[in-house]
């Protein structure tokens, strides 16, 4: 159904409109069009700085976060054939968070903004390597989930350990806020860290999309048709790790998007994994853009964190979906 031309156009138009609102709406009011054209002519005013240096990278980051997490969620649910699978299930988000927490806890983050993403990335890659290494001798998809849950639990405990052992209340404060997930004040630098990793991850996942369709016939059938299951697992895990590591390293943990988006898409694409994979990024990007715009519209003294809002909005919706489906 989503393949119908009007729906495609509607989705595209929604994305464009939301991106426009994401640039226009903010904590402060700006004269959008003058700021836009002033920025093009290198005329620096407060409005142009806000539009070009703060809101544009933020909107780009929303698109990256949404599309990346939606894609990773769809790929994992397709591969594991488990409707509860999402990027955090395989432990990569938790590992990335642990890396970031370490960088803040030991004080390395004070050396510059590059160090927290680098630490998060290294830890997510380590988690990915562990996951691939520990699952290479098994064909069971359940093993992937169980090992992922184990990695997630270990990373979570180490994060808590870092928090409880931290001598420094200022670092604890920073760690807690970082973990809540946010795209506030991201710069082009952050976009440049996340963007290429998400693109590379997306390459691995899209490459596997046809195999995911065949896998829905069952492992044995897929294997007999010629699907290389080990290769498929490697592609899915590597793709997911690159995407989740690249995103979490910059924004912190943004939950639930990877979980709920495929559920939203699936009924419109006849539950076909390949098409779920194609559409989830766009729908997830819409969800993230809506959440991020809502954060800026909701009047609060501080700012609600993106990760908090996606969980708050996502949980009731997810419960509704589950109650309808009776899994």
């Amino acid at each position: 159904m989503l393949e119908s031309r009007p729906l495609k156009a509607f989705t595209g138009l929604t994305l464009i409109l939301l991106s426009y609102f994401s640039l226009k709406v903010g904590h402060v009011e700006i004269d959008f069009f003058p700021a836009f054209f002033d920025g093009l002519s290198q005329n620096k005013t407060a409005d142009t700085i806000i539009l070009w240096e703060l809101r544009l990278p933020r909107t780009l980051m929303c698109l990256i976060v949404g599309s990346g997490l939606g894609l990773a969620g769809a790929a994992l649910q397709g591969y594991l054939r488990n409707p509860l699978a999402e990027p955090s299930v395989v432990g990569i988000s938790s590992a990335a968070a642990l890396g970031a927490v370490c960088s803040i806890g030991i004080g390395v983050s004070a050396y510059g903004i590059i160090y927290t993403p680098i630490f998060a990335l290294i830890f997510s890659m380590a988690a990915c390597w562990t996951l691939i290494h520990l699952t290479q001798n098994t064909d069971s998809k359940h093993s992937v989930i169980l090992i992922g849950v184990g990695i997630s639990a270990l990373a979570g405990s180490l994060t808590t350990l870092m928090l409880s052992l931290s001598d420094n209340p200022f670092a604890v404060n920073e760690i807690v806020f970082w973990m809540l997930g946010s795209v506030t004040d991201v710069s082009y630098f952050h976009v440049l860290i996340s963007g290429p990793l998400v693109l590379l991850g997306a390459f691995f996942l899209f490459k596997s999309s046809s195999d995911l369709n065949l896998l829905s016939l069952g492992q044995e059938t897929a294997s007999s048709i010629g699907v290389d299951l080990k290769r498929l697992r490697l592609d899915i895990l590597l793709g997911t790790a690159l995407i989740v590591g690249g995103i979490t390293s910059v924004t912190g943990i943004v939950g639930f998007v990877g979980l709920i988006t495929p559920h939203m898409v699936r009924p419109f694409v006849n539950h076909e994994p390949k098409r779920t994979l194609m559409w989830s990024p766009a729908i997830a990007a819409i969800l993230i853009l809506i959440s991020d715009i809502a954060i800026r519209i909701i009047p609060t003294t501080g700012e609600i964190k993106l990760g908090v809002l996606t969980s708050l909005l996502g949980t009731p919706f997810f419960l509704y979906l589950i109650s309808q489906k009776r899994y």
Partner: peptide
């Protein structure tokens, strides 16, 4: 209008354009 303390986006600071902005000093970074 907002006398309370809180976490604010850089947008507020840029729009407010105070004559003096006091930022954290960090020898390392």
């Amino acid at each position: 209008e907002n006398p309370q303390a809180g976490f604010l986006s850089s947008e507020f600071i840029i729009k407010a354009q105070p004559q003096l902005l006091l930022l954290d000093k960090n020898e390392i970074s």
